[in-house]
Design a protein around this nucleic acid. Sequence first.
DNA 1: CCGCAACGTTTCAATGTTAAAATACCCTCA
DNA 2: TGAGGGTATTTTAACATTGAAACGTTGCGG
Lengths: 148, 148
Amino acid sequence: MPRHFHGTPRQERALSAYVKLLRASETVHSEATRTLAGEGLSASQFAVLEALYHVGPMCLSELAHKILKTSGNLTMVVSNLEKGGLVTRQQSAEDRRFVSVAITERGRKLMARVFPVHLERIVELMNRLSPAQQDELGRLCRKLGRNL
Amino acid sequence: MPRHFHGTPRQERALSAYVKLLRASETVHSEATRTLAGEGLSASQFAVLEALYHVGPMCLSELAHKILKTSGNLTMVVSNLEKGGLVTRQQSAEDRRFVSVAITERGRKLMARVFPVHLERIVELMNRLSPAQQDELGRLCRKLGRNL
DNA sequence: CCGCAACGTTTCAATGTTAAAATACCCTCA
DNA sequence: TGAGGGTATTTTAACATTGAAACGTTGCGG
């Protein structure tokens, strides 16, 4: 049994970049969401609230697409937000299969307070890279994201 | 309510890089783990198995540190692997607080078959970037990862 | 019009995840 | 020696996550 993995150069290179990408993402994300935990918001809850806050009411499948989660998941996340009075559900009148989700006044107030803090935390975390490096990272990551 | 978020240039830059980083990581990771799902392995299970396969027996807290998860979590992941006969638990004789986890022959055979496939999948996914770009991505991500 | 495929949502079971409390163990020092 | 502090693991509760199955609704083609 090898004590550590060794492969071809192209394997080592890809694996190294892959691991660092996942580490960076995991670190930055968990640091950024630490702020939210103090407000009793999970990452998914924040993502939903943020979409509704900045874009407007949406049905569940649109939300699912927006935040890259399955619909089965969203049912629970939205239900939990609903319990907290942060969003409302309303069955569409024209097509009763759709359920429209909207942010409440309470949710809006929460976001008005929390979003700027969260944003500044992200700026702070990303500032380990220079502006030019941030742009370069964005360019490289864009090539890897979501176009299967 | 703004239809879309607009901030200062430095906020937009950081946020854009942040979102792309998370998207890229999410996409690549879920694509890479798709292979494993066919083998009945979750990402965490694979990570544990891979560590034991390439490094050797370890106690739970070492494993937790290795794959960046909490110990409470590892208890479950290891238990599930144990059910499948892929790893064994053994309480340390010297210090009975420690539980050493080792990969079994069955687990080793599984990894011998699955790991190369998984690695090639990662190479394939990362090949949307040139070798130089992969190195550059690694460099940038290294500055963002885990040194709080 | 009717049957049926397609679609949006929900439910379910299994696993993962975390934080916090509980448990078990080791070691030191008075 | 035995009380207490520190450490490793497990348990627990709450939420997240996915895939699959179930349910209700809509719209289309025969």
